[in-house]
Computed example of a mutant assay.
Amino acid sequence: ELMEVEVALIFSLDAESQKLKLAAYEGVSDEFARAVDGMKIGEGFYGEVAKTGQAMVVENVSRDPRLTKPEVQKMRIQIQLIVPMILRDSITGILCIAMRRPRQFPSEDIELLTAVGTQIATAIENARLYEKERLVAQRLAVSERNYRQLFENANDAIWVHDLEGNIIAANEATEKLVGYDVKELIKMNMRDFLSDEGFNLAGQVRRKLLEKEPVEQPYEQRLIRKDGTEAILKLATSLVT
């Protein structure tokens, strides 16, 4: 609107196929849009700008020998200004404005449209990164939910504690094994249900794991239940990073 143009086209450059994908358009027919979508780098006006990274003003469009799409003639476009969209020194697409009547595009218009192209390129990249982060977060949520179900429903006792021995999480099988419920367990330390000998053994295993020394697993460990009875276990321990 600021430049009073009749046609506007935004292409994003697909790095894998090296083709220009029409992302948005205004003032042209759907037939025209389909015709110019997917042009290769170096093909026609748009492809040349994507290849060279140099702005281009095309006058007498319908008579220009570089014209490769007859649909442009049908739209009776007289003049086009095409600029690259550049982000971090890389061409990410092109921006084109055009008129069906004669006019001039002075250097000020070229500079303005180039600046607009950079803003659009930044916005597209931010949207792409946001969508990527959203998908990653969605997959992590699904993965975490699946892990939680496996953790909680496992037949074997599983618990997680920090390097100081403070319990962070435990499953239902652990409750049955030691006699404490999860709410009690997450307030406890491994020392609370290990003998001095067992606690020292746990410390040795932890040290070896941290120093990446081999640990024979499973190993025997003795736990003291809530009712004071002793349970002899075959235990496997791993670091969570």
Rank of each mutant, 00 (worst) to 15 (best):
L67D: 06
G228S: 06
N126V: 05
P106Q: 13
K176Y: 07
K69R: 09
T122K: 10
M56G: 01
K208C: 02
V116W: 11
E230I: 10
L239D: 13
L112Q: 03
T241W: 13
F105K: 11
K21V: 13
G228T: 02
L185P: 09
I91F: 08
Q18A: 03
D181N: 15
R128T: 07
R34M: 03
Q104S: 08
V7E: 08
L2P: 00
K183H: 04
V58Q: 12
A170V: 12
T68K: 15
A15H: 04
E16Q: 14
I232V: 09
A15N: 04
M75T: 04
V160R: 12
E48G: 00
E1K: 11
D64P: 02
L150Y: 03
S12E: 15
S143R: 14
L140M: 11
S90I: 11
I94D: 03
E197C: 03
A169L: 15
T92K: 14
H161G: 01
V240S: 06
G27P: 03
E133C: 00
G198C: 06
S143W: 04
A35P: 02
E108A: 06
K132L: 14
A8G: 08
E71V: 13
K234N: 10
R139Q: 14
R101F: 07
N126A: 03
T118P: 00
E111L: 15
K19I: 07
E213Y: 02
L223V: 08
Y25W: 14
M39L: 09
E31Y: 03
A169V: 04
V57Q: 13
F151G: 05
N200C: 02
A202M: 12
D196A: 08
L129K: 13
R76E: 15
T237R: 11
L129C: 01
S29F: 10
G53Q: 14
Q204M: 11
E133R: 14
K187P: 00
F199R: 15
V57S: 05
V142R: 14
I158E: 09
G42K: 08
E4Y: 02
V36H: 07
R148E: 14
R88T: 08
E48F: 03
E59T: 03
V205G: 04
S17K: 14
T241R: 12
R101N: 05
P84W: 15
E144R: 14
I120A: 01
P102M: 08
M190Q: 09
R206N: 07
I224E: 12
A35M: 10
V61S: 04
T241N: 08
E213K: 15
K74M: 11
V83L: 04
L81C: 01
E216S: 05
V49P: 01
V178T: 13
F105A: 02
Y180V: 04
L201D: 05
L140E: 15
N171P: 06
R191W: 11
M190S: 05
V182P: 04
G198P: 01
D30M: 07
H161C: 07
K208E: 13
E197G: 01
I167Q: 05
A50E: 09
E16A: 10
A231K: 13
V7R: 05
E71R: 06
E131W: 09
D109N: 13
V178H: 00
L223I: 07
V215R: 10
A23C: 02
L194P: 00
I82G: 00
R103W: 00
T237I: 09
